[in-house]
């Protein structure tokens, strides 16, 4: 299903570290406003896929974002194109306040202007962060740190949000909250590419998904299709 109007269109992508390729001939698409997930076991290459899109990993093949080729571009120019990445393990700046963390999301790219308004929108989405603006990010709970990291990414007003294992290491109750957070972000029209080991969570929020195994796409379809697929049910949903 090649769709020329897709916002993100990855085709024939090979990527890895040094001489080792982790991704082999991967092709993935994300349409404008679409919520897509990539599921798979540990070491399947899910994080590498997102890191490659962000330019942190060297790649061959093609990653086209809204008509612009991303392969070969340095990582720091990618956010300005409209792609925000929330790295695995949350990665807030622990010794900065929540406010500084969130503001830095836009500060770094010099979009300035309506910074305060943007910040306000983000904080409206995450009221918990507003209560903790002056607290050091390192002292937040895991779920709150995840909110801060997502909030920081949203300051860019990205057209595509890359989420790397957001549920990792969070209590089940917090994971439920994340579920609502994702849907809230998605409702604003932002396209999301979510990488998750928590297959149940991923398939319940995303409209469509890909299954990655040892660096190759082995299956794709709508979330309903994938949830009904026997292989997915036995391998990832434990049913």
């Amino acid at each position: 299903m090649t769709n020329p109007s897709a916002l993100l269109s990855i085709s024939g992508l090979h990527a890895g570290y040094g001489a080792m390729d982790v991704l082999h001939d991967v092709s993935i698409e994300v349409g404008a406003g679409e919520f897509v997930c990539v599921i798979g076991a540990n070491t399947a290459g899910k994080s590498t896929l997102l890191r490659t899109i962000s330019g942190l990993v060297a790649a061959r093949g093609s990653i086209r974002f809204d008509g612009t080729e991303l392969v070969g571009r340095p990582s720091h120019v990618i956010p300005a194109l409209g792609i925000a990445h929330v790295p695995e393990g949350r990665h807030v700046f622990p010794e900065m306040t929540v406010e500084e963390n969130v503001m830095l999301g836009a500060y770094a790219v010099r979009s300035a202007g309506d910074l305060a308004a943007r910040c306000d929108r983000v904080l409206t989405m995450f009221p918990r962060l507003r209560e903790r603006l002056t607290q050091l990010a390192g002292t937040l709970s895991g779920g709150e740190q995840q909110m801060a990291a997502i909030g920081r990414a949203l300051m860019l007003q990205p057209r595509l949000l890359l989420l790397d294992e957001p549920s990792h290491g969070l209590a089940p109750k917090i994971v439920d909250e994340l579920h609502d957070t994702f849907l809230a972000v998605s409702r604003t029209g932002t396209s999301i590419l979510l990488v998750e080991q928590n297959t149940t969570l991923a398939l319940s929020v995303a409209g469509r998904g890909y299954v990655l195994e040892s660096g190759r796409v082995v299956l794709s379809g709508t979330s309903t299709e994938l949830s009904g697929n026997d292989a997915v049910r036995s391998a990832y949903l434990g049913l």
Partner: peptide, 18 residues
């Protein structure tokens, strides 16, 4: 701010455009 972002988390700094 950029320097402090690098100090605290270089990868996170990179993906927000530093």
């Amino acid at each position: 701010y950029r320097l402090r972002a690098i100090k605290e988390n270089a990868d996170a700094a990179e993906v927000i455009g530093v």
